[in-house]
Design a protein around this nucleic acid. Structure first.
Length: 716
RNA sequence: GGAGUUGUAGCUCAGCUGGCUAGAGCGUCUCAUUUACACUGAGAAGGUCACAGGUUCGAGUCCUGUCAACUCCACCA
């Protein structure tokens, strides 16, 4: 982040010229037809990665193309506050200063957070304007700014009024390191070889035993029952008897349940509702109590007697030792299973019971499903992928135990509702600010706000609307919604894209975007994702510094095929960039030949008119040019940027330069008008992809108008 | 367990609704030697388009199956 990006002088000059001339600005008052592109807001964390650089290159090419076609283009930029990620980074910095959230307190911590946000934002911002992005910076949005805050409040309030919100103690996935609940979608799995312990539980008042297999003996303290497979002859005589918990002597009822897999372990399952989602379900149906052996910091609770305060790993070992001493371990097996870990910090996720907020998603998903046909997905099969997920939707856990984010806009009367319960008859108020009114019960004002914040995606899901000023019915919303074009990495198709579709349809009764372009993932040569921990990332800034913006953009268009992952390496990127840097040099040399080395005889003759063509070379190159115009236009309309750039490269270099220009040397004066014309049109076609060099050269050619950005898109 | 994607030159990949001797960039080899451009030009070598069937006048492209690689979702006591 402290790296200063060195933009080349030419790029800086033109970018400044465009921006200061207001060419990037959308104009809601204009009569032109709108074309709107929504930039996925990058996370507030340092630099952009190569994939985002590609996104920006894609968005910008289409924006520039549509502008030249005469649309009123809105390319709207923004930044996401990235709740968990940003908070984690800041806490790491604070811990180096010996500070913690606890020591600072919420208010001081937030002060620090906003200060840090500004620092990151400033340096970050410099780097991401670097790609030549023709975004309307005057409309830039940050997901925690007041406009979004208001929209998020509306969203929350409407959900509440529609009775789609609920709060309660449920089993959720908890990351002990991040200190918050996370969603299934925010977890990943690591395959590990662990031990499976076969533990014997004595049947009360007998010398019989029932054996169960468990990978987590430390949670035996929180067992509240034992379930066996339905109609299992082996266990028939044990049903309705009680087993004795070997670690604390508690009595555990034995019962049947069809959800127990008869093939796994012994066919009997210890039920620990506090620490396993399946057990939670089974426990609920059989009215078992819920106990906790592990707390939210990942340490053992008082329930575990002398193990209290130990970390899970240690406690597991100690529990096994104890069980061995008691002769309760029948055998031990190795087994390989996938352990869920937090996507961000790779800490093992603990299923825990916690008070969280949820949104009932079924009605939203159903509405979305009915409207999926209205969105043009690229590639097409994403419609099915998203639809399949929507059909299996489960409720959205939206609360996070963090401080960085939109604080839940709910206030409880501390006196009358100390447990912060939720419901129509409870002493609580939905409000963005501290309520002014009195509590209905006590007639006083003891309002305290809910401690938690909303999931980052709760605000990002509203991005297409919040950025245009929803819930007010703004002129922008009327003109630019639904968005014409949105792009995203496939990674966040459920977290983000599916949410935008559902929320857009729910609140605005319209799809959020007409064209949804999923680009592929850039991977290393072994097919692995780029990541900090692997150290295999490629910095787009290094490429830009070495090869220039135009060349780097061109190299990236080669990877911009919908749904196709691309394998690459620093070396491969360098090769590709080098190739397009050479292409840029070729353009400069064409310019030099056509304009600087113009024969004396025609020095002062501007040849803009291309009359009747008699020469066969002239006819041929004009035909080829027309074909290229058609192909580039068609491919841009279809968002096939790789084909558009291919066609241009092939035409300019191998048809125009290698053939036509070579041949023209014999009849230079006569060919001059065609040379100038073909070159100028070529630059215009190339401008969406290589904005800087095309502007630089176009300005030096005989031309009309202030900028190549403002020219009319060539027609065949 | 469910869904999806990929398999084309040494490498990274294009190839649209099936249509002439299958393409690009990089790499390799030969030639050109100061040309608008060596950040160049001309040319060459290199592919049974994973495999096996099928549809068709015609298949890299469509269908079925097999093998391989990958991704996503669910589950994992």
């Amino acid at each position: 982040m402290d790296k200063v990006y060195k933009q080349q002088a030419v790029e800086e000059k033109w970018y400044k010229f465009w921006e200061e001339s207001g060419f990037f600005k959308a104009d809601p008052d204009s009569d032109k037809k709108p074309y709107s592109l929504l930039m996925p807001p990058p996370n507030l964390t340092g630099e952009l990665h190569l994939g985002q650089a590609m996104q920006h290159a894609i968005l910008d090419a289409i924006a520039r193309f549509k502008r030249m076609q005469g649309f009123d283009v809105l390319l709207l930029p923004g930044v996401d506050h990235a709740g968990i990620q940003f908070e984690g980074t800041l806490n790491k910095i604070l811990s180096k200063e010996g500070l913690t959230k606890g020591k600072l307190g919420r208010e001081k911590w937030l002060e620090r957070a906003w200060k840090y946000k500004e620092e990151v934002y400033q340096s970050f911002h410099k780097t991401w304007t670097a790609f030549g992005l023709s975004a309307d910076w005057s409309r830039e949005v940050f997901t925690l700014e007041p406009k979004v805050r208001k929209a998020v409040f509306e969203e929350f309030k409407k959900f509440w009024e529609e009775e789609l919100l609920y709060k309660g103690a449920y089993i959720i996935q908890w990351c002990p390191k991040c200190g918050t609940a996370i969603e299934d979608l925010e977890m990943e799995y690591q395959e590990r070889k662990e031990k499976l312990f076969f533990v014997r539980y004595q049947i009360k008042n007998t010398n019989d035993f029932i054996a169960i297999a468990t990978g987590r003996p430390e949670t035996i303290y929180a067992d509240t029952g034992i379930a066996v497979y339905l109609n299992h002859p082996k266990f028939a005589k044990l049903i309705s008897k009680n087993a004795i918990n070997p670690l604390n002597g508690n009595e555990l009822p034995i019962f049947e349940d069809k959800r127990v897999d008869k093939k796994f372990g012994t066919g009997a399952l210890k039920i620990t509702p506090g620490h396993d989602p399946l057990d939670f379900e089974i426990g609920k149906d059989h009215h078992l109590p819920t106990l906790h052996a592990v707390d939210k910091t990942g340490r053992m609770t008082e329930l575990t007697q002398d193990l209290v305060g130990l970390k899970i790993e240690e406690a597991r070992q100690k529990s096994v030792e104890k069980l061995e001493q008691l002769g309760a371990i029948e055998k031990t097996e190795d087994y390989i299973h996938s352990v869920p870990v937090c996507e961000r910090c790779k800490t093992t996720v603990e299923p825990l019971i916690s008070e969280e907020w949820f949104v009932k998603m079924k009605p939203l998903a159903e509405k979305a499903l009915k409207n999926m046909d209205k969105i043009n997905f690229l590639p097409k099969n994403y419609k099915k992928i998203l639809s399949d997920w929507l059909k299996e939707i489960h409720d959205w856990s939206i609360s996070r135990s963090l401080w960085w984010g939109h604080r839940i806009p709910v206030w409880y009367c501390q006196k009358c509702n100390p447990n912060h319960l939720v419901g129509k008859d409870k002493d609580m108020v939905i409000s963005i600010e501290q309520p002014d009114k009195n509590c209905q019960t006590c007639g006083q004002k003891h309002w305290v706000q809910d401690e938690q914040v909303l999931d980052t995606w709760f605000s990002s899901g509203l991005w297409p609307m919040a950025t245009l000023g929803w819930s007010d019915n703004t002129q922008e919303l009327k003109k630019y919604y639904p968005w014409d074009f949105e792009t995203s990495a496939p990674e966040i198709k459920f977290l983000w894209i599916a949410r935008m579709i559902m929320l857009g349809l729910w609140f605005k009764d319209e799809i959020p975007f007409k064209n949804m372009f999923f680009h592929g993932m850039l991977r290393d040569l072994q097919g692995r994702k780029f990541s900090k921990s692997l150290g295999n990332g490629i910095s787009p800034y290094d490429l830009v510094e070495k090869w220039g913006v135009d060349a780097t953009r061109m190299a990236l268009y080669g990877y911009s095929i919908p749904g196709r992952d691309g394998r690459t390496s620093r070396q491969l990127m360098d090769e590709r960039c080098k190739n397009f840097r050479n292409f840029g040099t070729k353009l400069k040399n064409i310019y030099r030949f056509i304009i600087e080395l113009k024969p004396q005889a025609i020095k002062n003759k501007h040849a803009t008119a291309v009359g009747n063509l008699k020469n066969t070379d002239d006819k041929k190159i004009m035909e080829e040019l027309n074909k290229t115009i058609q192909s580039v236009t068609k491919n841009l309309e279809g968002f096939k940027l790789h084909l558009a750039t291919d066609a241009l490269y092939e035409f300019i270099w191998h048809k125009f330069a290698d053939v036509y220009i070579e041949k023209s040397k014999a009849r230079r004066a006569e060919a001059q008008p065609i040379l100038e014309y073909v070159f100028r049109i070529s630059l215009e076609l190339l401008h969406p992809f290589m904005p800087f060099i095309t502007e630089e050269l176009w300005q030096k050619l005989p031309h009309k108008g202030k900028s190549i950005m403002l020219t009319k898109w060539p027609r065949a």
